[in-house]
Design a protein around this nucleic acid. Structure first.
Lengths: 153, 153
DNA sequence: GCTTGCCCTAGAGTTATGTCTAGGGTTTAG
DNA sequence: CTAAACCCTAGACATAACTCTAGGGCAAGC
């Protein structure tokens, strides 16, 4: 049993366009064609496509995914190269995870400030410091100046 | 004390081009100009720029960052909106982290297979199954066929 | 006062990853 | 045997996020 490109698009979260684009980019050399030239996806093809999505969703570039797939097409002789490629990518993912975690921490600190009962005071102080810094350097104040009933004159 | 665009580029991992691009995109309304029209970055500006990078590096689009910065320029009256915006982004980050972790697990499973002493056998079996599936569906076999000394005839 | 090395803007060009259109063949149900 | 709903390719278009170029002003050292 095989699947048409439409069925595969429905099974994955890729569009028909994206599937054809991936094929054009050399990511799907394993997908055979039927006598009419239509792509016929097997279950094994879906499995490989899933691997491609894993790599893509963790930030691997299409050219590197193409290299990995080329190794797969080559058979068991490329196991060492596949291992190196995936190990390098694994390190890249770990680095990215660490970076995201660090940035998330900073965003959480901001959120804590905004959620604090003293939020208005804290934010107001930060703003006041930033504005004072502009004045101290003879620069125009780019922040919106709060009106305190002085607008009616 | 203020910094030139070049100094800021050196302090951050953004290029001068990117800094000017961000300014054009409305991400840096807080950066004042000196009498010659040169951007003069204060320490407070660097702090805000750092926040921008946190958001960008966790996948926030420039239009959303622009919205956040607009709220900041608006002063303390926008604290609630900032909180909602960051909370929504926080959820997006958590979802992305979970997706990456899941994909990483699958990549690690592949790596385990490739690192196994039986790697060649396991990979060979997978390949054989995939090829059998093609044959069973009357499809051409797209995989490279291994030569076993049959090439010299 | 002239050269060098900054700074500026406007806008063109690039890269990566899709997304869509035009033109045409195939399959299936009536 | 024809209409609807698929499939195909080639190539144009889109989008985001830069990156660079051209043309020109400012500032510091000789």
């Amino acid at each position: 049993m095989t699947y048409t490109i439409k069925e595969v698009a429905e099974k994955t979260d890729l569009s028909i366009y994206t599937l054809r684009f991936y094929d054009k980019q050399g990511l799907l050399p394993f997908v055979s064609r039927n006598p009419s030239g239509y792509r016929a996806f097997t279950d094994g093809d879906l499995h490989l496509l899933h691997t491609i999505c894993c790599l893509k969703d963790t930030g691997m570039k299409i050219t590197d995914i193409r290299q990995y797939i080329a190794y797969v097409m080559q058979g068991t002789s490329s196991i060492d190269q596949r291992k190196s490629l995936l190990q390098a990518h694994r390190q890249a993912i770990l680095a990215k995870q660490a970076a995201i975690a660090k940035n998330l921490q900073e965003i959480d600190m901001k959120l804590n400030m905004y959620a604090s009962p003293a939020a208005e005071e804290l934010v107001g102080q930060e703003l006041a410091v930033a504005q004072a810094e502009k004045i101290a350097n003879d620069l125009p104040n780019p922040f919106q100046v709060a009106m305190r009933g002085s607008e009616n004159h």
